[in-house]
């Protein structure tokens, strides 16, 4: 596989991961359980949106066909999206949202830290900015996992259920394919081994403190990187892309 094509795909994946999660968190805007959490989640959403813009701008540049970040975000359909399935899952209750963020963050932070050493200067620079944001994100979601898990009987049960429901989507975070290995050989993306170890360490520590049980690794969902998604992504994109589809090129 050509290096440039692999780099384009990788930027799309990172851009879609952060953009889709950002949109999901944005859905909480005005609906948060308390004002303070409403702000916390929308802050996070904006952090992720900023990261998504960086990746998608760079993707357009690498591709060299004149597609802008907006073209890539709003004019690709579901099968063209290559985010992991974890981030597209509906928000559910607050425990579900937090568990989804926590599992993502536990992977995202060590990934970004390793990406700081990328031989691709642009990716290293994006990681440099994002790593500070992701550090706070993990702190926020970890604290809530502990509050839910070690809280009341009901909050414990809901957090445990959320972990159970979402665990199947964690396998995809550590998958490699031709795109990934091509870039890894070029020193552009990191070895996933240490990142998996860091993920396991964080998850085990936080869940132990939260008195929650780590789900067993059973069937792991896959396919997001190939554009095969759960039924939820299409609905989400339908809403997210509506304006650009109905009024192409609209500006305000």
């Amino acid at each position: 596989m050509e290096l440039n094509e692999a780099l384009f795909q990788f930027c799309l994946r990172r851009g879609d991961d952060t953009h889709v999660l950002s949109h999901r968190l944005g859905e909480w805007c005005g609906h948060g359980p308390v004002l303070e959490e409403d702000m916390a989640l929308t802050n996070r959403a904006l952090d992720l949106l900023g990261q998504a813009r960086n990746y998608l701008q760079y993707a357009g540049q690498v591709e060299g066909k004149g597609r802008s970040e907006d073209d890539l975000a709003y004019l690709r359909n579901e099968r063209g999206y290559v985010n992991c399935k974890l981030v597209e899952q509906p928000n559910g209750d607050y425990a579900h949202t937090i568990a989804k963020c926590f599992l993502f963050d536990a992977w995202h932070l060590p990934f970004l830290k390793a990406q700081l050493d990328s031989k691709d200067e642009q990716l290293a620079a994006i990681a440099g900015k994002a790593v500070k944001e992701a550090t706070y994100h993990l702190r926020h979601s970890s604290e809530w996992m502990v509050r839910f898990g070690d809280g009341t009987e009901e909050s414990h049960q809901r957090a445990q259920q959320a972990l159970h429901d979402l665990w199947t989507f964690t396998g995809e975070l550590f998958e490699t394919d031709e795109v990934y290995t091509t870039l890894q050989q070029a020193g552009i993306v990191p070895d996933l081994g240490p990142i998996k170890e860091a993920f396991d360490r964080t998850v085990n520590e936080v869940l132990a403190e939260a008195t929650l049980k780590r789900p067993e690794d059973e069937f792991m969902a896959s396919g997001g990187r190939k554009g095969q998604h759960t039924e939820h992504l299409g609905h989400m994109l339908g809403e997210m892309q509506f304006l650009q589809r109905a009024h192409p090129g609209a500006q305000w």
């Binding site: 303070e36 916390a40 802050n43």
Partner: peptide, 12 residues
């Protein structure tokens, strides 16, 4: 939690 909330609400 108050410090984190303050970070999110008042230092944006």
């Amino acid at each position: 939690m108050a410090i984190e909330n303050a970070r999110d609400v008042y230092t944006r």
